[in-house]
Design a protein around this nucleic acid. Structure first.
Lengths: 351, 351
DNA sequence: GTGAAAGCGCTAACAA
DNA sequence: TTGTTAGCGCTTTCAC
């Protein structure tokens, strides 16, 4: 009845820009300029405005801002699965950097399911993200067309496409893998097996090739039968280990395409009564947080999630903010390095 | 030069509601009604509108929607740390449910740092979340005032406050702990130790009390000196185990306040040459994903992240959508259950 | 340097 | 049942 405004909420604790303007006795334009750091505002007014803002505990409504400015300050990040221990650390870093630069992030998991990916993309589009980091390391291509179509900048991991506004992050596995092989060779291992990832995964193939090259470079002889395709799971690691054990000539060290596979090997070796590292050396790849907690703690090739996150953010931010160069495609390289823990040692003495 | 609109983006692939209206030859109001499922729209027009929408690949701008409707369909979830293996699964479930109901989520980690928490809250406020799930299991209280002040519904875990629009999720540890103690007792253990969490954590105290009660209920004698305060980390578990070992009379089974502590015990036992479960039974609590991958796989008390996520979402959704009952405070109970794996067995035969 | 005013894309009165 | 219109809270011309 006595209500005056049309759709004003009843007891709203959230002041708007008009309230600030009224309190500071300036126009809303001046408040806006002050908040956005426009250099034209005189110090006298700026001070009054900030005081009013403080006094009212005011903060701008991002939706209104987005609507009028066309900038959402929202970035999307799509991972394969947040439950996969590789990703939380990555998301964490990405969030930290983004927030530090005034961006908000939208996280979602594709679960390797194209239908889910479609939904993710749609959600991001609806929220008007300014860029999307697609860190699924796999089956990305098809649905991403939507993002391209809507002109949303992207950054892809290990997947180079020649499209404007789409940058790429390449992973330098070879450095870490070479270091791992050398580490083993230095211990005296000359028989090194490799438990590969599924060949449909681009990264798995790269890792395998890098392994082969490293064996060469170390002056060792590559044994094709010691390279076994697994599936990046613990079970796969167990199975891979067993295949290796069934051979007559067996390696004294196993490098795995990822940590879960290595954890499978640890488990299988334990069940067989083989001691790691005395009887068998094992190395993983990724350095998921659990690698530190295995029995024994796993020597592994660390893929820096921090670097990855930085690269992804930089690519997106640049696209979002550099309007001079709207169609740039950049390329980043993220390094790997060996983390020596306790799953590697010299090979058992020959009898 | 020849540009007509004022601030129109140049080549915009994103049609707006007017484009749809024009194509369908209806007013924008009809388009809006159609999209929002208003029952008043005639089938004839509705069909034309949907066709136009499809044809243009149109989707509404959520920011505009939020601005005018006052509903953001955004929910916040604050966890202690996304890197803590307890949380990803929780976030995953929360996301799934939320998305299934047309909500988007904003995830952030407080890192147990009040300053960071303040930022999280601020970010959520700026984005106008309709509710926040505070699942930090700890030091929440102080900064949350901001949310209360701004009238944002909340749901807290294990932390009951009597404030309108703030619901609580209680965790029923006792069921799981009782089952664990019984499991051990059934094996013949009568000497059971407990590696507690830090007493400043409410949940840790509850777990400890439930343990004591369960020992009683199992008809066992409680040994105070077998209860040791640890800190929920692997190192803490190692230290706790060592304290227990230093005692003259030692337990044959150890229940831990969380899985990381149990993993520490596994490690320490391994280093001492004690076999688990033959020489010592170990039980964890949480059932983090790694628990399945330890050596041996860890018997543990599972705290259902799915249930937790459901409860959190339901609480928030109800607050957001039930405007009849704007100040309701609900209470949820989430259960725990024993997951038997391979770290428990009968005690070693007495000599 | 400052303010008035025009919208950003939508929803929700209100009219017809 | 449908259309017209007034804003949601803000940024950004454009005058002054």
């Amino acid at each position: 009845m006595a209500q005056k405004g049309t759709r004003k909420k009843s007891a709203d604790n959230t002041p708007d820009i008009r309230a600030v303007a009224a309190l500071a006795k300036v126009s809303i334009a001046t408040v806006s300029r002050t908040i956005n750091g426009s250099p034209v505002v005189s110090e006298r007014l700026s001070k009054r405005v900030w005081q009013a803002i403080q006094h009212l505990n005011y903060f701008p409504n991002t939706h209104a801002r987005t609507l009028v400015s066309g900038r959402s300050r929202l970035l999307g990040i799509i991972v394969e699965n947040i439950t996969n221990p590789f990703f939380p650390e990555l998301i964490q870093s990405f969030e930290e950097i983004a927030v530090a630069h005034g961006y908000e992030i939208l996280v979602s998991s594709s679960n390797s399911d194209p239908a889910v990916l479609t939904t993710c993309v749609r959600r991001m589009l609806e929220r008007k993200v300014e860029g999307v980091a697609v860190l699924t390391f796999g089956e990305e291509e098809p649905v991403l067309d939507q993002l391209v179509f809507h002109d949303v900048p992207m950054v892809l991991a290990e997947f180079k496409v020649d499209v404007p506004k789409v940058s790429t992050i390449l992973l330098d596995y070879s450095t870490g893998i070479r270091a791992a092989v050398k580490h083993l060779a230095d211990f005296g291992h000359s028989n090194i097996g490799f438990l590969a990832g599924p060949h449909k995964l681009h990264s798995a193939v790269t890792r395998e090739n890098d392994f082969c090259a490293s064996i060469d470079q170390a002056g060792l002889r590559l044994q094709r039968k010691w390279i076994i395709e697994c599936d990046h799971t613990l079970k796969g690691g167990v199975a891979g280990f067993e295949k290796l054990q069934a051979l007559e000539a067996r390696p004294t060290a196993i490098l795995c395409s990822n940590d879960m596979t290595a954890i499978g090997v640890l488990r299988a070796a334990y069940m067989k009564g083989l001691r790691v590292p005395q009887d068998l050396s094992v190395i993983g790849l990724d350095d998921i947080s659990f690698a530190e907690f295995t029995l024994p703690p796993l020597t592994t090739i660390r893929l820096s999630r921090t670097e990855l996150a930085h690269a992804a953010f930089d690519a997106l931010r640049q696209q979002a903010e550099d309007s001079n160069n709207p169609n740039m495609q950049r390329e980043f390289l993220v390094s790997t390095s060996l983390v020596v823990r306790e799953s590697t040692a010299p090979p058992p003495a020959r009898k």
